[in-house]
């Protein structure tokens, strides 16, 4: 069922230029007075202005194509995304190999403008096109015993120059708790700005979980498995102290090597100010209840 969640405001509500400039002046004044905290609090309620196509498609972490930010844009063209098959298995009623065409036929594509916060403390705003993961899982028929969803990225040494280095234990794997996976904010993206999603952003289909650090939003998915037990996840396997299974955006819990309290919005140039990071990346109203009673400094 599409359209269960709406942006507070969308691109259609774009602020008239004059009003935009006015607010910039107000914010500038606030910054001048040192009221950065207040400006940050106001930001949650503001409309989201998406980053440029260039920001979104030329500044990527996709280590299968290299560890530099511009490597994926340079190298990912070698990935064959058509034909593409996604194996859905585990605790589902209708396991099998689903072609991308089959999946797209069954799903309704919509646009979602989400904040995207990388664990490295940079962020973007991205206008995704895609469908809710819940719809795909419902199509596969989730069985009663299923508690988690495991995801796997394609592993193709011939097409992915980065996997010849042991940066991570390939293939890249990720996972969500079933309630997180079924949450209406959680989506599978197949496009950006109304165009087919570029390879470097995870073509032909990638996960988007906007309240979690970006590495949870696994790219170029070839397998989805419903499981009873918490599945292993790549960064957690690489360094459990630094990357937990949950990895919710949380300004109060720092990465052991850097602060998560603020972030740098990509595209601002040399002199852009950092902005405060929001709890659950600004989606606390929607998702905080999923973690009620959990100590978020322990369940990182």
């Amino acid at each position: 069922m599409a359209h269960r969640w709406k942006n507070d405001l969308t691109r259609a509500d774009a602020t008239p230029y004059a009003a935009f400039m006015n607010r910039r002046q107000l914010m500038g004044g606030a910054l001048g007075l040192g009221l950065i905290g207040a400006a940050g609090a106001a930001r949650a309620a503001e409309e989201l202005v998406p980053n440029s196509w260039e920001d979104i498609t030329q500044y990527n972490n996709y280590y299968e194509f290299g560890t530099r930010k511009d490597d994926p844009a340079r190298n990912a063209h070698t990935l064959t995304t058509s034909p593409w098959t996604v194996k859905i298995d585990g605790l589902v009623d209708n396991p099998g190999d689903y072609s991308m065409a089959q999946i797209l036929d069954a799903m309704t594509i919509e646009e979602r403008i989400y904040r995207f916060r990388c664990v490295e403390a940079w962020s973007m705003v991205i206008p995704w096109n895609g469908f809710e993961l819940a719809d795909l899982l419902t199509m596969a028929g989730v069985q009663d015993g299923a508690k988690y969803v495991a995801f796997e990225t394609a592993l193709r040494p011939d097409e992915m120059p980065g996997v010849s280095y042991p940066v991570l234990d390939w293939p890249y794997v990720e996972g969500l708790r079933l309630d997180e996976a079924m949450h209406p904010l959680t989506m599978m993206a197949t496009g950006i700005y109304g165009k087919t999603i570029p390879n470097q952003n995870g073509a032909p289909m990638r996960l988007v979980v906007p309240w979690k650090y970006g590495f949870k939003s696994i790219k170029s998915i070839v397998r989805i498995t419903l499981t009873e037990d918490e599945p292993p996840t790549s960064w957690n396997k690489a360094n459990a102290r630094e990357y937990g299974f949950y990895s919710n955006v949380n300004p109060e819990v720092d990465h052991p090597r850097w602060s998560q309290a603020s972030e740098r919005l990509v595209g601002g140039g040399l002199f852009a100010r950092r902005q405060p990071t929001l709890m659950f990346n600004g989606y606390a109203d929607e998702v905080a209840s999923l973690y009620e009673g959990m100590d978020l400094s322990k369940f990182i």
Partner: peptide
């Protein structure tokens, strides 16, 4: 850094 030669996020690159 000023003209985009260091990519979309020039501060880290610099």
């Amino acid at each position: 850094a000023q003209t985009g030669g260091l990519g979309r996020e020039p501060v880290k690159a610099l």
